[in-house]
């Protein structure tokens, strides 16, 4: 057996604290002075290390150390518990769900809140515009004209007459539109003249009521 192998075995015995076995190794040690000395020295060194292992460091005031530890965990308990719950991964589903809900709420308020704001803003602006328009005399005139158009459009006589108007290349709606612009511009008599010049008969009751209405609107102004 080679000396190097014998010394490896010696190390294993000595440091692992296993019982010495193997007759072959024993025979080698008896016949090899170098390996015998190696065994002796290794035993000595290992013995000193084993002795050092028995020199257990003494913990002075162990109760004081325990109290310091307990005090530290109590003082920081709230924060520590928070960390334990987060870091330990305990109830991860709830934690993830809670975070997702928070994120979703933020997104919801960002998207829908903005939309709501835009809608409210638009409605508010429209209401302001409507209020401004409804108070203007032009708006009233426009409403009256719209009503008149409705009356004329429902008259069968007008529908027949419309064919004649078309042959004279006069568009009744253009006239009304012109009358409307004229009325809005404050020149109602001209508008009336324009309508009269369309040749619509005096016997047509709706037209007569329309003329009356324009007259009254003009005089009230």
């Amino acid at each position: 057996m080679k000396c190097s192998n014998v010394r490896k075995e010696i190390d294993r015995w000595i440091y692992q604290y296993e019982p010495e076995t193997g007759a072959e190794i024993h025979r080698h040690i008896t016949s090899c002075k170098a390996c015998a000395r190696y065994l002796e020295e290794t035993r000595l060194a290992a013995g000193k290390i084993a002795g050092l292992r028995r020199m257990e460091p003494i913990l002075e005031n162990p109760e004081g150390l325990t109290e310091d530890i307990m005090k530290a965990i109590r003082e920081d308990s709230t924060e520590i518990r928070h960390n334990i719950t987060e870091k330990s991964g305990r109830l991860p589903g709830i934690i993830i769900l809670r975070r997702l809900l928070a994120a979703a709420s933020v997104c919801f308020f960002l998207v829908f809140g903005y939309e709501e704001y835009i809608m409210v803003d638009k409605i508010s602006r429209l209401e302001k515009q409507n209020a401004a328009i409804s108070q203007s005399p032009q708006y009233q005139s426009a409403l009256n004209l719209k009503m008149a158009i409705g009356i004329l459009a429902s008259d069968p006589g007008l529908l027949n007459r419309n064919k004649e108007l078309k042959t004279k290349k006069i568009n009744l709606m253009s006239l009304f539109r012109a009358a409307l612009y004229a009325d809005m511009a404050g020149i109602t008599p001209d508008a009336l003249q324009l309508l009269k010049s369309s040749g619509y008969g005096e016997n047509n009751l709706p037209f007569k009521s329309l003329l009356k209405h324009f007259d009254s609107t003009h005089h009230t102004k």
Binding site: I69, A72, I73, I80, N83, I84, T85, K87, S88, G89, R90
Partner: peptide, 11 residues
């Protein structure tokens, strides 16, 4: 070390 144990016992 014991404070770490307390904090990380969940893991």
């Amino acid at each position: 070390s014991f404070i770490k144990v307390w904090q990380k016992i969940g893991t």
